[in-house]
């Protein structure tokens, strides 16, 4: 009799442990696992950051730097998703799809987008909103919102608000000392170092937010199911002077 009780106890413990595991999965990536999107279209970037009124050449260069960084944020969002096994149309094809759209970004975000599923075969739309840029003498910050909406049900399958900051040390002339990667980026893309800082910051942020999503159809056969969230819903990402990334804020 005692042995039976032990067996029943062990069985209950196992069941409790199993249910905890599936609960975690259900609460974080339930929609993604249920809908299993194969194709993700990245909607045109909603750039809400302020630009300067152009009075001098410096203002013009500043605005140009923000425009380049915004484009980099849009362009580098596809790579982590592709690596996770989703089909993501390229930027030129996406521009052609966006050109046929008559709704504004806000309408697209809030209204019914089931025609994307029925007419274009797109399972989910990723909306990226660049909210704000901030800058001090040696640091650059950006606030970005990511939202992945299902085209079939209209549910938000993922929502992340991220605040990323990059801080550099000062050199002996009291100007920020760029990392070797920043210099390489600047040489490769033919842009100034300040633009390189912004571009690298948004690239790292994109990679961090999107790289650990549950696997898409192409990678699902080899992927393990994800029970823990890749990152909190609200977080601050800090890139230190030595190039290491630090997450300093947890869920709100």
């Amino acid at each position: 009799m005692r042995r039976y009780r032990t067996y029943i106890g062990i069985l209950l413990l196992v069941l409790a442990a199993a249910s905890c595991k599936s609960e975690k999965r259900l609460s974080y990536y339930n929609d993604l696992y249920r809908e299993q999107p194969a194709t993700i279209y990245i909607a045109p970037l909603a750039d809400m950051s302020m630009r300067r009124v152009v009075r001098t050449t410096e203002d013009s260069l500043f605005n140009q730097s923000l425009n380049t960084a915004a484009q980099q944020l849009y362009l580098t969002a596809a790579d982590p998703l592709v690596y996770r096994g989703y089909y993501v149309p390229g930027p030129l094809a996406s521009a052609q799809i966006a050109a046929t759209e008559h709704r504004s970004g806000k309408q697209l975000r809030n209204e019914d987008i089931s025609d994307y599923h029925s007419l274009l075969g797109i399972d989910a739309v990723l909306f990226i909103t660049l909210k704000e840029w901030r800058q001090t003498a040696n640091s650059w910050s950006v606030e970005v919102e990511y939202a992945l909406r299902s085209t079939e049900t209209g549910h938000e399958m993922l929502h992340v608000d991220a605040h990323a900051t990059k801080t550099l040390p000062f050199d002996f002339k009291a100007s920020p000392l760029p990392l070797p990667e920043d210099r390489a980026f600047s040489d490769r893309y033919g842009c100034d170092l300040e633009t390189a800082q912004r571009c690298r910051l948004v690239e790292i942020l994109n990679r961090y937010v999107l790289k650990d999503l549950p696997s898409g159809r192409r990678a699902r056969a080899t992927a393990t199911e994800q029970y823990e969230p890749a990152h909190p819903e609200y977080f601050t990402l800090k890139i230190n002077a030595d190039g290491t990334v630090q997450i300093s804020k947890t869920d709100q």
Binding site: Y83, P91, Y189, G190, C199
Partner: peptide
């Protein structure tokens, strides 16, 4: 197979065209 290698898109040229 897990790492899913893909040849990258030409980022610099894409950025130049987009801007």
């Amino acid at each position: 197979a897990c790492s899913g290698r893909y040849a990258g898109m030409p980022r610099a040229e894409l950025l130049a065209y987009q801007t």
